[in-house]
Write a protein that binds this DNA or RNA. Structure first.
Length: 470
DNA sequence: ATGTGC
């Protein structure tokens, strides 16, 4: 394996063709990587229509076919799309809400607020909410996204301005989402799920960039709320079915396939089109889901603080494939950008970000591991040139779920976090153990790399006060 | 991530 540092924090992996493979990380993060990550990146570089460079963010680790923290762009005409390149939890993402409260408002009611949130926001494996949808309503949700949720009474019109794509993925087609996928989602709207998904009440503990913080509406000691979840059962079902179909597609045509999990279809093919539209529908499911949870959070806060409004800072996904335009060899080209465990990170003056954030760049919401820091970053000036407008998404695992389960105890973790002033409410001790902070990389180190490279810049650091887990 | 398994 030939790998060399071509610039500070940029490592290039030698591939057999003309496609560059670039890993954005430091020496310590590089040394911690399993070799499967390199093989997975090499495999992507062999796919038809891939546009150089294939990128890995500093929180990268091996995944299903594609590594987590992987970014790969494909030519709209000659390229391919891969369900494994988006991942199982389509449009998993983070949404952060601003409150007008400060630390001293929360501390006296910390336990009660935790109970209230835990009671109102369903979480855990197979969690169901109070909302029940018919197939017809599921279809409307899959087309309308967050807008649909707001029309149902979950939130305010103004929220839409602060969601990627204005809250609606425009090319969604529910006809390409199976009945089984829809069935799974009938009772799951407004639920958090499990795994690394969470709802946190956090305090702004440090501000790195005063000007951008002001534009984002952030101040020291302010309370914010972050919601990390995705498209639940529906997204998982869509991903599973299309991965299987893409395996069949590639096998039937005897297309070169270095890794079965990397199955793909040409973007222009019938299957490629179908997957793209179904994936867009799943994005809408995730956006609607986070919108409903927002409403539940707002009502919980209003029980303690009558009449306050929790404004939306931003909502951004980190498992998607999007159609975006980039300069390739001096020409503007439409590309399909896979981001799997990578966040869109559009910098200042990008026309696709809200007017309010034009000067700062889009908010980039980075969840740390449970009980550790989270970061609010701003889209950087260099993401456009280096990483197809992308940056990291979180800490990234260093230990498998299974290993973490064996190594840590959920009960011990809770008491440890309590001692650090963090109130935890979870549905499963096993689930908590899987998310032990030591099973993850140091999020601060990950963020530092993106800051140094100008993929995204540090605006604020958040410390959790309340953690709600599945 | 996931009605936590093919």
């Amino acid at each position: 394996m030939q790998i060399k540092e071509i610039e500070n924090n940029i490592f290039e992996l030698k591939s057999s063709n003309k496609v560059n493979i670039r890993l954005f990380l430091d020496k310590k993060l590089l040394d911690a990587l399993e070799s499967t990550v390199f093989q997975q990146l090499l495999n992507i570089a062999e796919l038809p229509g891939v546009i150089s460079p294939v990128c890995a963010m500093p929180d990268t680790h091996s995944g299903y076919g594609f590594p987590i923290g992987g970014v790969a762009a494909f030519d709209a005409e000659e390229g391919v799309i891969s369900a494994g390149g988006v991942g199982f939890d389509i449009a998993c993402g983070v949404r952060t809400l601003l409150t007008p409260l400060s630390l001293r408002d929360i501390l006296p009611i910390q336990e009660d607020l935790a109970d209230e949130l835990f009671q109102r926001v369903p979480a855990g494996v197979g969690s169901k909410g109070d909302i029940k949808l018919s197939f017809k309503e599921v279809d409307k949700m899959l087309v309308g996204g967050a807008r649909w949720a707001i029309e149902q009474g979950f939130g305010e019109e103004i929220d839409l301005q602060f969601i990627e794509d204005d809250g609606v993925a425009k090319e969604a087609n529910p006809d390409f989402v199976s009945k089984k996928a829809k069935e799974r989602q009938k009772y799951e709207m407004g639920t958090l799920g499990a795994g690394n998904h969470y709802l946190e009440v956090q305090v702004v503990e440090e501000i790195f960039d005063l000007e951008k913080a002001k534009i984002f509406g952030l101040s020291l000691n302010q309370i914010v709320v972050s919601i990390h979840c995705g498209s639940r059962g529906l997204g998982h079902q869509v991903a599973t079915e299309y991965m299987q179909e893409m395996v069949k597609y590639t096998q039937k045509r005897k297309l070169s396939l270095p890794d079965k999990n990397l199955a793909y279809a040409p973007i222009k093919s019938e299957l490629g089109r179908r997957y793209f539209s179904a994936m867009q529908a799943a994005i809408n499911c995730a956006l609607a889901n986070r919108q409903i949870i927002t409403h539940l959070v707002r009502s919980a806060f209003n029980k303690f603080f009558k009449g306050i409004f929790l404004a939306l800072l931003y909502d951004v996904s980190h498992n998607t494939c999007r159609k975006e335009v980039y300069e390739v060899k001096g020409k503007l080209k439409e590309l399909y950008v896979h981001r799997k465990g990578a966040t869109r990170s559009f910098g200042p003056r990008n026309k696709f970000i809200p007017f309010k954030y034009q000067k700062a760049g889009q908010p980039v919401l980075i969840g740390g591991s449970m009980g550790t820091f989270s970061y609010i970053l701003a889209g950087g000036d260099n993401s456009d040139k280096l990483s197809f407008g992308s940056t990291c998404h979180g800490a990234g695992r260093v230990m498998s779920r299974n290993q973490a389960k064996k190594t840590y105890s959920g009960k011990n973790l809770i008491s440890k976090l309590n001692k650090a002033g963090i109130v935890v409410r979870g549905h499963s001790y096993k689930g908590l153990a899987e998310e032990a902070p030591s099973a993850y990389k140091d999020v601060s180190r990950v963020v530092e790399v993106t800051h140094n490279l100008g993929l995204s810049t540090k605006v604020a650091r958040l410390r959790p006060l309340i953690v709600i887990k599945g």
